[in-house]
Design a binder for these strands. Structure first.
Lengths: 223, 223
DNA sequence: TGGGGGTAAACGTCGGACCTATCGGCGAGG
DNA sequence: CCTCGCCGATAGGTCCGACGTTTACCCCCA
């Protein structure tokens, strides 16, 4: 195994074992390189790799730190990976989202507060009757993001965030080409919000399923 | 933005845009560095980062290649990230798995072949009446892995693979400490297989839910 | 035709030199 | 006494050149 790979493993081990905690500062590159027994160049490759996946946070002129290591931070790196997938696999991502989103929405129905419900209402109201497609999709993303946050599960929340991104383009496309798609989206959002306000998990789940299935079916039909 | 980060973005752009296809070989480091306008050292950091997430495959003495970019390959990098999560978040992962696994099992019930059913049967039979905990958990993982593969969704399959790993330790622990856990697991596996053999998605889904919920409840109770 | 050796190409590692952003102390000024 | 701004120490950012190590592949010989 290459020394750089060893360094990656060693740094990982230091974090997992607890020798390094979230937020801790690493020794400066020269010292850490000496400590791990490799050159600064090779160590830098290891650090760069770990910073790409948000394990380390490198601050020029300051030092290198361990990130908070929260699921939201680490899973954020997933979006980088997802960007490489071809359109052909978008349908697979959407299928997974169709599984997770209804579940998250149902979970949210049991935990959502009055304040959060009101916030969602204002979010939907903020959009006019005939919004631009880009605004609608942005509003769509935010709507579902907030609901996922109410699920109380940060892993679920991050996964949905990641899975939603690659389907954004597809949704914009749909809004532009499919007759009535915009109105349908607005109506379904309102229905989901009503279900949440009623604290009705099953209705919320069903509307979320219908909502995503409509995108999925459309996408499957045009691919 | 640092030149290395630019290089990462440029290489990513080359792949996403189609200038580089899956399996393609990159120019040698010296040439690519010149092409992108940076030094070989900095370029190597970019390449190392991309190889950590399985975008590039560096073969010493040969060259650097773009991987197949299949979901299974790219999502495999997720396990590296998941390794950094603390035990406290294992429950969140398990919750997500409890959402995905039943769905995958239900999907599998509709697509599974006679041959695959027979294979699962042999897998379960391969374990004795009183297996070692480690063998049981390994068998458990393989059982669910094969079922997920039958779902036909590689993204779903990879995600489950990743989510299952961090809960492995917990399951071993449970097998060692909870009375009757081993027998219960074996019985539930058999029930899931029966449901699959009957091509009954809803029964399969329910058994999968029960199966994972039992682990989840136990884990929640001991944490 | 098949195997073995050799060579060239490519990645791996190292050390050092120099640039640059950042932080924090210190002193001048209000 | 407090505040603002300068400045030096520190740490990461980049580059260069050299050499080691592995691998693929071609050529030669049996």
């Amino acid at each position: 195994m290459a020394v750089t790979d060893e360094a990656i493993e060693k740094i990982k081990a230091m974090i997992v074992s607890g020798a390094l905690h979230a937020g801790d500062r690493l020794p400066k590159e020269a010292d850490l390189a000496a400590e791990l027994g490799l050159s600064r160049s090779s160590l830098r490759e290891a650090v760069r790799a770990l910073s790409l996946v948000n394990i380390l946070d490198v601050r020029r002129g300051d030092g290198t730190y361990v990130t908070s290591l929260e699921p939201a931070v680490l899973l954020e790196a997933l979006s980088f990976i997802v960007d490489f997938h071809k359109d052909a696999t978008v349908l697979e991502f959407l299928q997974v989202r169709r599984i997770l989103e209804p579940a998250a929405t149902a979970m949210a129905a049991k935990r959502i507060t009055e304040e959060q419900i009101a916030g969602l209402g204002r979010l939907l109201d903020g959009l006019g009757k005939q919004p631009e497609v880009e605004d609608l999709v942005a509003n769509d993303l935010e709507f579902h993001r907030r609901i996922a946050a109410c699920s109380g599960n940060s892993v679920l929340c991050s996964l949905l965030e990641t899975l939603s991104a690659p389907t954004t383009r597809a949704r914009v496309w749909r809004g532009l080409t499919q007759e009535g798609a915009k109105e349908r989206t607005l109506d379904e959002h309102r229905a989901i919000l009503d279900a949440l306000a009623s604290r009705d998990p099953e209705v919320a789940r069903s509307w979320a399923t219908v909502h995503i299935a409509s995108v999925e079916q459309w996408l499957a039909s045009v691919l």
